[in-house]
Design a protein around this nucleic acid. Structure first.
Length: 189
DNA sequence: CGCAGGATTTGCT
DNA sequence: GCAAATCCTGCGG
């Protein structure tokens, strides 16, 4: 399930000076060809073909000509569902991440947002199709712990955005700014 | 072969 | 709060 990825640890360039580890705190689920917002909506096109493959692989695409977004292919082979990684908290290699992010941002927001997450972890088009279940340049380590979970509507899309397919770790500041639902005045968050 | 739009981020007003 | 930056993908002719 999509929310099982919340709390998992993303490992990049393990064993090198560039090693970075981050805990996933926000994801967004995309269904198969029946989801108008999914890239799989138009069938197994060249770009979306990765999503039609086996689960556990990385699907990377370029958004707005400048930002990369990383997805984890989910579900059985052929179901074409995927989970977009929207935000994570750095647990190791903060200096490396900070150097990639030119501007000044709080430590908690270094990987906040799909585009920022890829920039901070140096995930690009060349990483498309990687198997995240085995050690490689990028892979996932499961973390079997319970975390407070919230869900809400998807963000940044124009179709079927109302479905409650976005999940995040309640109370984590790294949750992307655009994704945060309206907050009452004076709550300080 | 050409065109329209997109799972976003950032900086200035 | 709003608008620009920027390029790849999918569709129509």
């Amino acid at each position: 399930m999509a929310h099982d990825l919340i709390g998992a640890e993303l490992v990049v360039d393990a064993g090198t000076a560039e090693e970075v580890r981050a805990t996933i705190v926000e994801v967004e689920a995309y269904l198969g060809p029946e989801d108008p917002a999914s890239h799989a909506f138009r069938g197994p096109t060249p770009r979306a073909s990765i999503m039609f493959g086996p689960a556990g692989h990385l699907y990377v695409y370029l958004s707005y000509g400048m930002h990369h977004c990383a997805n984890v292919v989910c579900g059985p082979d052929g179901s074409a569902s995927a989970v977009l990684l929207r935000a994570a908290g750095v647990t190791r290699g903060e200096q490396v991440v900070r150097r990639r992010r030119a501007t000044t941002v709080p430590s908690d927001r270094l990987l906040s947002g799909p585009g920022n997450l890829c920039r901070g972890l140096a995930i690009g088009a060349t990483d498309n199709g990687l198997d995240l279940c085995r050690p490689g340049r990028v892979y996932l380590e499961a973390r079997s712990r319970e975390v407070p979970l919230s869900s809400g509507p998807r963000v940044g899309i124009s179709r079927a955005a109302d479905l409650p397919l976005r999940f995040w770790w309640t109370g984590r500041p790294a949750v992307s700014r655009n994704a945060v639902p309206p907050v009452k005045k004076g709550t300080g968050q």
